[in-house]
C-alpha cells in the first residue's frame, strides 16, 4: 500500500504516510485514510517516503485541510524532501499548512 496511517498523541493525531508517487491514483485511498477517523482534529501528512508529487496531490492536501478546518483542526506537513518542499513553497502552502521538518 502506498498509503498507511498511524496514530500519535494517544490517538488524538492521525499520521498519514504516502509512499512513492503521490498523484491522483491515490485519491480514494488518501480520502479513506482520514474520512473514517471520527473526532480526530489534528492530521499529519508524513512525506518522508514520498518520491514525487504533482498538483493533484496538492489538491488532495487542500481537501484534507478543508476536512480538518470543518472539525476545527489543522493539518501538518512533515518530513518533506528538499525538492518536495520547493513545490510546496511555490504553491505557497506554507501559508495554509504547518510545515514541519
Amino acid at each position: 500500500m502506498s498509503i498507511h496511517t498511524t496514530a500519535e498523541d494517544g490517538g488524538k493525531t492521525l499520521v498519514v504516510n504516502v509512499r512513492g508517487y503521490f498523484d491522483f491514483s491515490l485519491h480514494k485511498d488518501f480520502r479513506q485514510a482520514y474520512k473514517g477517523a471520527e473526532g480526530i482534529r489534528r492530521f499529519v501528512v508524513d512525506l518522508r517516503e514520498t518520491e514525487y508529487m504533482d498538483s493533484s496531490a496538492l489538491g488532495m492536501l487542500l481537501l484534507l485541510r478543508e476536512h480538518a478546518t470543518d472539525q476545527g483542526g489543522e493539518v501538518v506537513l512533515r518530513n518533506s524532501s528538499r525538492e518536495v518542499r520547493k513545490i510546496l513553497e511555490i504553491a505557497n502552502f506554507q501559508r495554509l499548512f504547518r510545515i514541519e521538518e
Partner: peptide, 8 residues
C-alpha cells in the same frame, strides 16, 4: 537533484 521539479 531537480528530478521532483522535472516530474511536476
Amino acid at each position: 537533484e531537480d528530478r521532483q521539479s522535472l516530474y511536476v
